[in-house]
Amino acid sequence: MTCVEDLDKEVILQGSSFKESREYVEAGFTEIYYVDPGFRLFEKHIIGIPPIAIGMDHDFIVFPFTKPCYGTFLLKVEDAEEAKRLRSLKLNTKKGR
């Protein structure tokens, strides 16, 4: 597994606010998991405002990636192993914390 910068990824949103990235996931996916800031995904701890929405579609994982100078990116990565790991964690599927 590689770090986020090296992943083969599709950029769905770039330079967005964190709120916009969450709303995009919630509007576009039926399988959504909510995680807390610091959750480890692709060997990186997620920066975010809880609850952080991660969208799943088969082996595709859609998640926010925030950079200090460029805002929040919403990335789409195909990774069967990581998708399987996420599903096995029994993460929260409801927005309420």
Binding site: F18, P37, I49, G71
Partner: peptide, 15 residues
């Protein structure tokens, strides 16, 4: 000074 900065600060607060 931007949304990302607030996002980082929220993460720091949480952690």
């Amino acid at each position: 000074h931007n949304d990302a900065g607030i996002t980082y600060a929220t993460t720091i607060r949480y952690l």
